[in-house]
């Protein structure tokens, strides 16, 4: 057993197994320099423990650690993202809604204009026929779609004919039905969007609905209830075929 600093350190730390410890003790008893070293090491330990600052955690750290743990235990915070997503969706929806509303407004204006123009100019009907088998083929080659022409004579809306017009930046089919002395113009064109509406404009009633991928706008000077019945008849006919 040599006089080793390492062993004396471990001895002072009380980290030696009993047999090594006994050997070191034996050595210390007979070696003055080692005994002096042991005393110095012990003193150094005390000095260290007395002088070296022990950095206790500040109170705010305790609080922030606990707050962090609570948040962690609450699980991944999904809601802020949900809130952000919801806000974005809402904003997009508002923009979209406003734009859609404006588009509808413009469309309604054009439909009224088309209806009025056709009445004034006497160009109400390009293909006068009460036979839907005549009217539908007439549209072939004039439109990039084939409108469903329904016979609603039994419901009190006989077919009078059809024409092609230009509304909302595209060619559209206009089916003309009669209700007594009144005309009902039914504008049809393909559309992805759904929805429906009804409004009054310049004394006309405008009813809008969608079915089977088609946007339908009916305009007439008949009573509002009559036009709604016309719409229902159109849709009922559609659902009959489905």
């Amino acid at each position: 057993m040599t006089c080793s600093r390492q062993w004396i350190d471990a001895y002072v730390d009380d980290e030696l197994d009993p047999s090594t410890r006994w050997q070191v003790e034996q050595h210390l008893a007979g070696c003055e320099s080692c005994a002096a070293l042991r005393a110095e090491i012990a003193a150094r330990h005390e000095q260290f423990r007395t002088l070296a600052p022990y950095y206790r955690a500040p109170e705010r750290l305790r609080q922030s650690v606990q707050a962090g743990l609570r948040a962690e235990a609450a699980g991944p915070r999904r809601w802020p993202w949900l809130a952000v997503a919801a806000t974005v969706l809402l904003a997009a929806g508002l923009v979209w809604g406003v734009r859609r509303g404006r588009e509808r407004e413009l469309l309604a204006q054009e439909i009224v204009a088309s209806h009025v123009r056709s009445t004034i100019g006497g160009r109400l009907i390009d293909v006068p026929s009460s036979d839907r088998h005549t009217v539908r083929p007439w549209f072939n080659g004039k439109l990039d779609f084939s409108p469903e022409v329904k016979d609603l004579a039994a419901e009190g809306f006989p077919l009078a004919g059809g024409r092609v017009d230009y509304v909302g930046g595209r060619t559209v089919a206009v089916l003309v039905y009669r209700r007594g002395n009144h005309n009902i113009d039914l504008f049809l064109w393909p559309s992805d969007t759904g929805g429906g509406s009804e409004s009054q404009r310049n004394g006309f009633t405008i009813v809008h609905w969608t079915e089977g991928g088609m946007s339908a706008w009916a305009i007439s000077d008949v009573a509002r209830e009559e036009l709604l019945r016309f719409r229902d008849a159109q849709m009922a006919d559609f659902s009959k075929k489905q």
């Binding site: 950095y55 955690a57 750290l61 305790r62 650690v65 606990q66």
Partner: peptide, 8 residues
């Protein structure tokens, strides 16, 4: 939490 000081 009792070891917060030691950790710090």
């Amino acid at each position: 939490l009792p070891h917060l000081d030691a950790a710090h």
